[in-house]
C-alpha cells in the first residue's frame, strides 16, 4: 500500500536527533520576540538558530530574552557563528555557546570571507570544522555550493552540509540547482540549503531536488506578513518533500503525451 502518512514516518535525522519538520528557522530581523515566536509557531519548525553576542549590561533585569520566548523544552537551539571571519573566532564563539546552553553541542558553523557578500571562507571553515568535531561538537556547516568542499566537510565529520542557494539575505533563490544535485547525490549526511531562499517556491525547489531540509531567516522575517510567510514556507517544504518522494515524471521536451484517451474521439 502507498504510504500516504509522510508526516509520521518521514523524519529528518541529524546526528542521531530526530525531527518532524524539515524547515529550520533563523530568529534574526524580526520586529520583536512576540513576532519571532508567532512566526516560528506558524512554521512548525523545531530547530531555531540563535546568534551569540555580548550581553547588553545596561538592560533592566526584567527585560525578557530570546531564549525565554523559545524555551529549550520546545525547540532545539542551533547556535551559529554569524559574523565570524576566522576559524579561531568561530571556535571561541561555539565553545561559549556550549557553556551558555549547558553542554548543548549541536551547532551551526559559518566562517565568512567577505563582509559585503557574506560568502563563506571555506579554508577557515574546514580548519574550524576539524577542531570542533574533535572537540565533540555536532557540526552543521554552512558552505559554498562546491561539491568537493561539501564532501571534504562530510569526511571531516560534519553532521550536516548546508550549502548556500544564493547569498545570505539576498532572496535570490536557488541559483545553481545542478551543483546542489551533485552535493545531494554524493552526500551521506543531510544536505540542508542554507541562505538565499526568497519565497515559498524556492523552498519547494530545494526540497524537490532532494535536499533534506531548508534553513531560512530573512525570507520570513522580512516578508510583509512574516507569520503568513512562515505558514507558506511550512507548506512549501512539505509539498516539495512529498514531490521528491513521489518521484516526478520524466521531462519530455519534444514529444507531448495527451492526458486524455486518444481513442473514442467524436468525429
Amino acid at each position: 500500500m502507498v504510504d500516504r502518512n509522510l508526516n509520521t514516518n518521514d523524519k529528518l535525522i541529524i546526528a542521531g536527533r530526530s525531527f518532524q519538520s524539515r524547515l529550520l528557522i533563523g530568529t534574526g530581523k524580526y520586529n520583536n520576540f512576540e513576532e519571532t515566536r508567532a512566526a516560528i509557531n506558524a512554521s512548525e519548525s523545531e530547530i531555531v538558530t540563535v546568534a551569540i553576542r555580548r550581553i547588553n549590561l545596561g538592560q533592566s533585569p526584567n527585560e525578557p530574552s530570546l531564549l525565554e520566548f523559545l524555551p529549550s523544552n520546545e525547540f532545539t537551539y542551533l547556535p551559529n557563528t554569524a559574523g565570524c571571519f576566522s576559524a579561531d573566532e568561530a571556535i571561541r564563539t561555539l565553545r561559549l555557546a556550549r557553556e551558555l546552553l549547558d553542554g548543548h553541542n549541536l551547532v551551526k558553523l559559518e566562517v565568512l570571507g567577505d563582509p559585503e557578500t557574506l560568502f563563506p571562507n571555506v579554508v577557515e571553515t574546514i580548519n574550524a570544522a576539524k577542531i570542533l568535531v574533535k572537540d565533540g561538537f555536532d557540526v552543521m556547516v554552512y558552505t559554498s555550493d562546491d561539491p568537493i568542499i561539501a564532501k571534504q566537510l562530510e569526511d571531516i565529520g560534519c553532521c550536516a552540509i548546508m550549502p548556500l542557494a544564493s547569498l545570505i539575505g539576498s532572496g535570490m533563490g536557488i541559483l545553481n540547482p545542478w551543483n546542489l544535485e551533485i552535493i545531494i547525490d554524493k552526500a551521506n549526511v543531510p544536505v540542508i540549503v542554507d541562505a538565499g531562499v526568497g519565497t515559498a517556491s524556492d523552498a519547494s525547489i530545494a526540497m524537490e531536488l532532494g535536499c533534506d531540509g531548508v534553513l531560512m531567516n530573512t525570507a520570513i522575517a522580512l516578508a510583509k506578513n512574516p507569520i503568513l510567510m512562515a505558514s507558506a514556507m511550512k507548506k512549501a517544504i512539505e509539498s516539495g518533500r512529498e514531490a521528491f518522494l513521489a518521484g516526478r515524471m520524466d521531462k519530455k521536451h519534444y514529444s507531448a503525451s495527451p492526458s486524455s484517451p486518444a481513442k473514442g474521439l467524436i468525429k
Binding site: G26, T27, G28, K29, Y30, T36, T49, V50, A51, I52, R53, R54, I55, L57, S65, L66, L67, Y77, P79, N80, A82, L96, A97, E99, L100, L101, I168, G169, L215, M216, N217, T218, A221
Partner: peptide, 26 residues
C-alpha cells in the same frame, strides 16, 4: 569560566571579561 568552577576562580585587576548570551540570528 565554567559554572562549576565559579568558586575556584577570582577576577583580578586588568582582567578582560566577556559575558555573552543568545540573541536573534540566522
Amino acid at each position: 569560566i565554567s559554572k562549576n568552577s565559579f568558586d575556584e576562580i577570582y577576577i583580578n585587576d586588568g582582567d578582560k571579561i566577556e559575558i555573552i548570551g543568545a540573541v536573534g540570528g540566522g
